[in-house]
Design a protein around this nucleic acid. Sequence first.
DNA 1: GTAACTGCAAAATATTTGCATCCTT
DNA 2: AAGGATGCAAATATTTTGCAGTTAC
Lengths: 139, 139
Amino acid sequence: MKKQGEEILKNSALSVTAGRKRILDIFLASGNALAHQDIEMQCAEQFDRVTIYRTLQTFLEKGIIHNIPSTDNMVRYALCNDNCITSGHHHDNHVHFKCDDCGKTVCLDDLVIPAIKLPQGYTMKEINMVVSGVCKTCK
Amino acid sequence: MKKQGEEILKNSALSVTAGRKRILDIFLASGNALAHQDIEMQCAEQFDRVTIYRTLQTFLEKGIIHNIPSTDNMVRYALCNDNCITSGHHHDNHVHFKCDDCGKTVCLDDLVIPAIKLPQGYTMKEINMVVSGVCKTCK
DNA sequence: GTAACTGCAAAATATTTGCATCCTT
DNA sequence: AAGGATGCAAATATTTTGCAGTTAC
C-alpha cells in the first residue's frame, strides 16, 4: 500500500520525491477531490506553497490528476482512476458531485456523462459535468 | 433598446446606477460569458475594480446573471435569459460551450442538459455542464 | 555528475473590507 | 432625508517567477 504513490510517479517517469509522495498520499487517503488549499492545510509545514502549485501542475500535465471546474473560484483536483492513468490519456468522462452540506467533491466514476448533440459547427473536445446537492453521507 | 439594462435593474428592485447599467450593457453587447477580467478591461477607467466585484455579486444574488464553472480559475458570468429572469428563480439548465481557439464561452440556450440518475442517496440541486472544443466561428 | 526538484524571496495579481462621500429614490 | 452604491485606501490572499541550493537517478 505504501508503494502506491511511488508507482504512480514511476509510471509517469517522474522522480520520486518526498513532496510528490506526500501529495499523492493525501489524495489517496482522502478519496475526494481536493483544492490547492485543502492540500496546503495538510502539508504546509512540510512543504512550500510553491512546491504544491508546481506539483499539482506537473501531475495535471502527466495525467495523474484531473481538474474539476467549480463556480466558487476553487478548482479542485482528483486522482485519475487506474485505467485513466495506464491508458496514457484521459477518459475523464464521469460526473462529479459536490455536496453543498459537507463541501466535498467526489468523482462518480461509474456515472458516465451522457452524450449530447452540439449545434451545427461545434466540435467537442472535452466535457465536464458537475452536479451539486446533498451527498449520501449528509442526507 | 437603450432601456433594456434599466428594465432589468428595475425588475430586480435594484437602483439604477451608471455602473450597473454599463456592466449590463457590456453583457448585452457581448453575447458571451464574461469573466471579471473581461469586464474590467472594458470599463476599468470608468469604474473601480471593487465596484465590479460588488456589482457582479449583486447580479448573481438577484439572478440577473449566472456563473459558469471553469477549470482555468476564471469563473465566467452570463446574463440569464428572459424567462430565467422573469420567473424569479433560475432554470440554468443549458449547456455551456468554451472554445479553445477564441477562448469565448457561450450559453447554448437551446441545448438542455440531459437528465442523469445519481447513485442511491444523492440528491441533486444544481447541474452544470461545460463542453470545450472549437466553436462554429473558429472551425 | 547532471538534470530535475525544492525553498525562499519577491513580484504580480486577485479579492475583501472599512469608511467617507455621493447618488438614487 | 435615508438608504444604498461607489471610490479610495489598505489589508489579505493567491499565483507566478527567478535563482540558488539540494536531491534523485
